[in-house]
């Protein structure tokens, strides 16, 4: 069930994100994440349905300012290539052939943006759209290895960032804890009691595959990194009682 590899610092990050209570904390988490992943930059950027923008990340403020001033949003192949999509994108997959795109890339690299990048687009509620990006200076081989090993981690991080950013939106009502269905509660309860997967599946008269999906759903709703964390969070929230 461990979609998140246990050796990554991602667990710590997701836990840090979960307790973030302001944009400043979100910014700090992005900085920690850069250190822990050992990449050049971590960037999160969102646009709401009504056009409001918010971003945090590790880019040099001079680059952010230049990006705005030059209107790069209109030619940035990452934004153009990811907007409204829901599949993760490696920057090498994008079209950098136009003169404007090449000039943009040269300017970006001159400002410390990596030559490699991986972006996860997210479609949120009510037309909200967000982009979570990791970028780095390295060759293709190293990058292919990194994104190959970490793809799911990065997707989970992207979604955790977005969930938190949505929660921090001004005027948003405090979010009620995502309700678990009775079946998810039963599954987590049995796991909390120390039963293994096969026993839980057997007790609930479902296949282990089905159980796996129920646990994955519960994991997401609880904002947990893995099954153990999901059980702990469910207990802590009182969603399950032993």
């Amino acid at each position: 069930m461990n979609y998140v590899s246990s050796i990554t610092p991602i667990g710590k990050m997701l836990t840090g994100l979960e307790s973030a209570d302001s944009h400043a904390t979100l910014q700090a988490v992005s900085e920690d994440l850069r250190t822990d992943l050992d990449v050049s930059h971590v960037v999160y950027h969102w646009v709401s349905g009504s056009g409001d923008q918010y971003g945090c990340g590790t880019y040099d403020p001079a680059w952010v300012e230049r990006y705005m001033e030059k209107g790069y949003l209109r030619i940035d192949p990452v934004v153009l290539g990811c907007f409204q999509s829901f599949h993760p994108v490696d920057w090498k997959q994008l079209d950098w052939t136009s003169r404007a795109a090449r000039a943009f890339l040269a300017d970006a690299v001159a400002h410390g943006v990596g030559n490699q990048g991986f972006s996860v687009p997210i479609r949120g509620p009510n037309g909200q759209f967000a982009l979570f990006t990791i970028n780095h200076f390295c060759d293709d081989e190293v990058w292919a290895r990194f994104t190959g090993d970490r793809r799911r981690d990065l997707i989970l991080l992207a979604n955790a960032f977005n969930q938190k950013a949505l929660e921090l939106q001004p005027g948003r009502r405090p979010q009620e804890a995502a309700a678990l269905s009775p079946r998810e509660v039963e599954a987590l309860t049995l796991l909390a009691l120390g039963h293994n997967r096969a026993q839980v599946a057997d007790t609930l008269s479902i296949s282990e595959h089905t159980l796996r999906v129920y646990i994955e759903s519960a994991r997401h709703k609880l904002g947990a990194i893995n099954t153990t964390h999901a059980v702990a969070r469910a207990l802590q929230r009182g969603a399950i009682v032993l």
Partner: peptide, 25 residues
């Protein structure tokens, strides 16, 4: 599955009431 889906909108009676939502599904 983080947005609207047929399975979550119409068929949760076939998934024991579980809304299947995950960035990995």
């Amino acid at each position: 599955t983080l947005g609207p889906t047929m399975v979550n909108d119409y068929f949760t009676h076939l998934t024991d009431g579980v809304r299947i939502e995950s960035p990995l599904i």
